[in-house]
Write a protein that binds this DNA or RNA. Structure first.
Lengths: 209, 209
DNA sequence: TTTTGAATCTAATCTAGATTCATAAATGTC
DNA sequence: GACATTTATGAATCTAGATTAGATTCAAAA
């Protein structure tokens, strides 16, 4: 019944197996979702990848939809937390535009490299049925707010060019970042090249000369 | 009734009925696809919108998948043609960066305002089953090539900043544009503001100072 | 040993849609 | 105004997948 990871310093906990299987299913779902997209994700694909028969999934999740919802929520959460962590690690004196560039880097790292969960969110957020979308709204709103603040602060500090519609600029940047999983592939170009290019685009695109 | 604007000076053409019904179905499919996404698009939604029962669709299209495929191909085609037309209208003397900005404008106009078909493509290209994707490859390759040329020409003319990975830059820009249907809504901001902001982002993001 | 409960399986059910088909309207043709 | 062709329908069929029901396995507790 316990779905939360409450074991910390303790010796191999009894219900450990259950917990890892659940995580394995969740991870498999994230992977399938990030590769095939919501439409094409079958419960059987997930089960296969997790090394189970489909009905076994129901021991851990009440339905396919709730499993997918959890993947999305976790993905959105991890994305935001990773970006927040990286931002928090910057010195207070960091200029606002440098903070934005750090956020760009953090976003791309997690979306392209670190987490199928994050990839799953960015690739599927536009395709979800209303219920899932509703569950996701709060968390994704928090992430958008993070970026809104980042830009607003930069603007207030005079680091952003005049004549930009701030909301549009923000969403265009998010779009550029969110679209990357559609085309980027570790084989044909290094991640750092993409990050550098994205940072350049943002810095010069948004910033004052 | 007529979703395409091709009837102008011509008298009612003989095979008009059949042809317009087919177009109506195609247009309905584009609209549903652009609103709900591939996953959630039911043949019955399309039929409803077109004012028909689902089986009637089979009089015009061999299957749901081929109907959707045609929407995608048409959408991709229109997107490219619209952009090409706008570019062709520019004076030969137009500087390369201005051409890029014109392409940005043309893309956004058609993707956000002019055509459900174009919206359908940009919103669903990442979610399609392999067969549909294969049929689309050639046409979408042509559109990518258009942008590749645009950037390559600008680069050759020294209008693009050094240190950018040209492929990454191009895909990031396409991402920013392709993502717009996910967030833009005519009610909360004018299209021209988005276009201006996008152009600014691209001009300063890619261009030499 | 026996019992139990967690974890998983196989086989059966249930359902939403897509597709087929045999016919009905509609439309045009002589 | 009867015939042929085009267009559309309602009712049946077919299928992929999600979900449920009912075993089965097995390790650990009693």
């Amino acid at each position: 019944m316990d779905t939360t990871g409450r074991n910390s310093m303790t010796k191999p906990v009894p219900e450990a197996k259950s917990a890892t299987t659940r995580d394995r299913i969740l991870g498999a779902a994230a992977q399938v979702l990030s590769l095939k997209g919501y439409a094409a994700t079958r419960l059987s694909d997930i089960a296969d990848l997790a090394g189970l028969r489909p009905p076994a999934v129901y021991y851990y999740f009440p339905s396919r939809e709730l499993l997918i919802t959890e993947v999305m929520v976790v993905g959105q959460l991890r994305l935001r937390e990773h970006v927040e962590t990286e931002l928090a690690a910057l010195p207070d004196s960091t200029p606002p535009m440098d903070r934005i560039c750090a956020a760009v880097q953090a976003h791309l790292q997690v979306a392209l490299d670190l987490s199928d969960f994050a990839t799953a969110v960015t690739r599927n957020s536009g395709q979800l049925p209303d219920e899932v979308r509703a569950r996701l709204r709060e968390e994704s709103g928090a992430y958008l707010a993070l970026w809104r603040d980042l830009l607003a602060t930069a603007k207030a500090a005079g680091a952003i060019r005049d004549g930009l519609d701030l909301r549009a600029a923000r969403m265009l940047v998010m779009g550029a970042l969110n679209w990357t999983p559609e085309w980027w592939n570790p084989r044909q170009g290094s991640l750092t090249a993409v990050i550098r290019t994205a940072q350049g685009l943002v810095r010069h695109g948004l910033g004052t000369p």
